[in-house]
Each structure stands twice: as structure tokens, then as C-alpha cells.
Write a protein that binds this DNA or RNA. Structure first.
Length: 481
DNA sequence: ATGTCC
């Protein structure tokens, strides 16, 4: 007797390949269909898939399988016959791997595919890397005059921002409750959420002429305005913590000691996500790559579409920065603190940089810029320290470092295997106050940040240590209002 | 990451 769980088990690409399905876009179409299974068990579905494969003509009128059947009949050989298909190089260029033993195979495989693109100049993978769409998260890729929307990522301009206050660590313990109120009052979390009416933020980004680039971008402005100053969901947070300088830092003009600080992690919200989706779609139409590389579709930077994406990406980056600025301004005002120093860095973006003496486009998808003396923030987890770092300018990493600890447990794995009580006890042991936050963001779901930092000693110097104390994230129920 | 498929 089958349990419901067994019947509902998902079908993955390997199941279909085992049936004899080809490794091209047919696989994608077939998997999409599986999402609306209409009560069929896994076994029944696999049987159907086998029938469609052997006689697609019988399924052209089938409600569920007609798109797949049609795909087989008039599409199956298309990608191979397409005269515009761009060939990958046979052997991938070498790329530097940091922290290899902790990086999942899938991420390395994705990096190898990226290294075969004809536009690729160099690549590197950071010790917190894991699989993503196209380029892995933690992947760094330098290209020649080409921009890959999925090499930047969905959350364009996602970044860290740190404000160090003129307040001693003791302030946190003395004002715990009012800090909590400040955090709740001045932040907004949850997918789709933003500010309305009198609560909408004002910022000069709204006057940016890049919003007038084309009607597609123009149409995104209203929602961008409403989400200005919000944080979103997933691993995004706004947190108070204590930052510890073991010695004076002259460049930041901070004296040795421990200070209250605010650390934020978020990106360009729906605005950037919509831009990423739109230009990935355009790139895929223009740049026909073999199946395995399709999410690495790129735009020539000199083409109209490439220019538009570049402008939109930069606008999304500035928008993400504005979101952080608003949060930091509101909170500094609310607690009446003076800001001694501010550090900010994006980790999902592309830049024009010089590599080996030539101008290249450096994509950092979940990687911290780490050029010589450039400051960045690498967060650990709620219960593990994050680090204020200064780049060493290591060319092998294409002047980059990790953007965090990286996951050791997938979201679904964390939700399944961790109990809320256990997470609460763990947070208590570390003296962490958490507002919101789902099980998938539990600290145990992340790798050991110390191991990650050890793997990138050649890439960054640690300037100060940040210990989170009070964390706000989207809560589990954030999808409802 | 994103109201998770226009």
C-alpha cells in the first residue's frame, strides 16, 4: 500500500531521462506539466510520460500533455538544427576554486559550463557557493563585452549595509525593548509587501532619469516606489548587533572597542526581479545556447538590449542602495544615534573592471567585491559572527570573496528536519532575539562561517567582528497580509 | 530572490 507521501513524490529530470527523455528543453516542458498533476500518483504519471514519449501524436488533444506532445512533434530537433545555435567551447577554461571540499558538485558543474561560453575570459568560485540558475550562487565570471542577466542573479544589486553607531555595546542591553520597537516600526518584510499612503518613502532615486529608459522600466516605477525602504523575504534581514574592533582603524576613523551597529541585507525587491526576468527572457531569445547553458544566455553590451539591461541593472542597484539608506536613516533617527561609519557592498551585480590588463565584465552572483582595500561585509548566521573585511585584491579570485557562510541544508531540508523548539532553544543559548524568521533560515541551516573565512584568507583581511543580537526577518506567514 | 507562469 502506497502512502500519500510516496504517491506525491516529485518527478525530477533524472526520472524522465531514465524513461529515455532527451536532455533538451523537452525536459523543462515535461517537468512543468508535472506541477499540475491532477491527482495522478508518481507511478501513473511516469507511465503517462512514457506513453507520450513513444506516441506523442495520441496526446495532441490531451488536456494535460498536449504541450509536451506538441513539443515532441514539432520541436524536438529544433535546437540541434537551429543555425543560430552558439557552440560552447569543448574544454572549460580553468577556474580557481576556494573551499572546494564544502562546495556541492552541482555548483562546480554549473561553473564548468559557464567556463565554456565563448565570451568567458575568467572565472572563480567562492567557498559559500551552491547551485543557482545559470551561474552558481558564489560564482564570479569575467566576460568580454557580454552581460549575462542570470550571471547577476534575480535579486539585482542585493547588498549588505552596516552603520556603526556612537553607542557602546552596553546600550543594546539597556535599551533592548525600545530597540525591538524601533526594528518593528521602521522595517517592512514579506514578499510583495511595501509601504502605502503617508508611509511611502521619498528618495532622490525616484527622480532618476534611468526610469525613463523605456516603457517597460517606466511601468515598474510605481511598485518600486511603494517597496522603497522595504526588505522582502528569504534570507533578508535587518539586525542590531555588536561590532568589535580589536584595534583602531584609521581609514574608518574608528577607535578600538565594541559598538552598537545596524546590519541590513536586502536587494531591489520586485523591481530588480522583474528586470531580471524580462531581460533573461530577451537574452534567451537572442542568444541560443545548448540546453545546459540556456540560463547563461547573454547580451552583447553594444546591442540595444544589452544597453537597456545595463542601464536597468544599474538603476536596480541604486534602488537597492536607496532601500538600505532609508532603513538606516529611519533607524538612526529613531534611536537618536550618530553614525560613526557606514560600509556597504553589493554582492549580486556586474561591473566593468580591468582584469589582466583588459576591460572585462565581472559578474558577481553572491560574491563580495574584494579589490585591494575595498571594504565589504560577510555575514555568518544569526548565531555566528559576520565580518567587516578589506579586500586584498587577489586576481585569482577576480578580486572577490564569499558573500556569507552559504547553506549546508536546503530550505526544504531545514523545514523538514528542524523543530521550532530546538531552534528557539538554540537562539536563546546565543542570546539572540528573533522577530519573524522561518525554519528555513535557522542558523543550523548554514555552513560554519569560520571554515568559509579560513578558505578565503588570501582574499580578504578581517577588520572587525560583528555579532548579531536582534534580528528581524520575514516570518513564515509573510505571504499573507 | 520574486506575489514564486503572461
Amino acid at each position: 500500500m502506497k502512502t500519500t507521501e510516496q504517491q506525491n513524490k516529485p518527478i525530477n529530470g533524472n526520472d524522465l531521462i531514465a524513461l529515455g527523455y532527451p536532455e533538451n528543453e523537452i525536459l523543462g516542458i515535461a517537468l512543468k506539466i508535472n506541477k499540475k498533476r491532477n491527482g495522478y500518483t508518481k507511478a501513473e504519471m511516469l507511465d503517462k510520460y512514457a506513453q507520450v514519449l513513444s506516441s506523442p501524436q495520441d496526446f495532441l488533444e490531451d488536456k494535460i500533455f498536449k504541450t509536451l506532445a506538441k513539443g515532441f512533434i514539432d520541436g524536438i530537433h529544433l535546437p540541434l538544427q537551429d543555425e543560430n545555435l552558439i557552440e560552447l567551447n569543448e574544454n572549460p577554461n580553468d577556474f580557481k576554486i576556494y573551499g572546494a571540499e564544502k562546495i556541492e558538485d552541482g555548483a562546480l558543474e554549473q561553473m564548468k559550463v559557464a567556463m565554456k561560453l565563448p565570451v568567458t575570459v575568467a572565472g572563480a568560485i567562492m567557498p559559500d557557493a551552491h547551485q543557482g540558475y545559470g551561474l552558481p550562487i558564489g560564482g564570479v565570471l569575467a566576460t568580454k563585452n557580454a552581460i549575462i542577466p542570470y550571471g547577476v542573479g534575480v535579486d539585482i544589486g542585493c547588498r549588505m549595509a552596516l552603520s556603526i553607531y556612537d553607542l557602546p555595546a552596553s546600550h543594546y542591553f539597556e535599551h533592548h525593548n525600545s530597540l525591538k520597537e524601533t526594528l518593528v516600526k521602521n522595517t517592512k518584510f514579506g514578499a510583495g509587501h511595501g509601504f502605502h499612503g503617508q508611509y511611502k518613502a521619498e528618495h532622490q532615486i525616484l527622480d532618476d532619469t534611468k526610469f525613463e529608459t523605456n516603457s517597460f522600466i517606466q511601468n515598474l516605477k510605481d511598485k518600486a516606489w511603494s517597496q522603497l525602504g522595504s526588505s522582502g523575504g528569504g534570507n533578508h534581514f535587518v539586525e542590531f548587533g555588536l561590532i568589535d574592533f580589536k584595534e583602531d582603524d584609521e581609514k574608518l576613523n574608528i577607535k578600538k572597542g565594541s559598538y552598537l551597529a545596524l546590519l541590513t541585507h536586502s536587494g531591489s525587491r520586485g523591481f530588480g526581479a522583474t528586470i531580471a526576468g524580462h531581460y533573461t527572457k530577451i537574452a534567451k531569445e537572442i542568444c541560443k545556447l545548448p540546453y545546459k547553458a540556456q540560463n547563461l544566455a547573454y547580451l552583447d553590451l553594444d546591442s540595444a538590449e544589452g544597453q537597456e539591461y545595463w542601464i536597468a541593472m544599474n538603476l536596480a542597484g541604486e534602488y537597492a542602495s536607496a532601500c538600505h539608506e532609508i532603513i538606516h536613516q529611519k533607524i538612526a533617527k529613531s534611536i537618536g544615534a550618530e553614525v560613526l561609519a557606514k560600509v556597504e557592498n553589493h554582492h549580486n551585480f556586474a561591473w566593468k573592471e580591468i582584469y589582466n590588463g583588459e576591460e572585462v565584465i565581472v559578474h558577481r552572483k553572491g560574491a563580495t567585491p574584494a579589490s585591494k582595500d575595498i571594504m565589504g561585509i560577510i555575514p555568518g548566521s544569526m548565531t555566528a559572527p559576520g565580518f567587516l573585511v578589506r579586500g586584498k585584491g587577489e586576481e585569482n579570485s577576480i578580486n572577490s570573496a564569499s558573500h556569507g557562510a552559504g547553506r549546508q541544508m536546503s530550505r526544504t531540508q531545514a523545514i523538514k528536519s528542524l523543530s521550532q523548539n530546538k531552534i528557539n532553544d538554540y537562539l536563546n543559548d546565543f542570546g539572540i532575539t528573533l522577530i519573524g524568521g522561518g525554519k528555513d533560515e535557522a542558523p543550523m541551516a548554514y555552513k560554519d562561517i569560520h571554515e568559509v573565512m579560513a578558505a578565503q584568507q588570501d582574499l580578504v583581511d578581517i577588520v572587525a567582528t560583528f555579532t548579531p543580537k536582534m534580528v528581524r526577518m520575514a516570518d513564515d506567514g509573510s505571504r499573507e497580509d
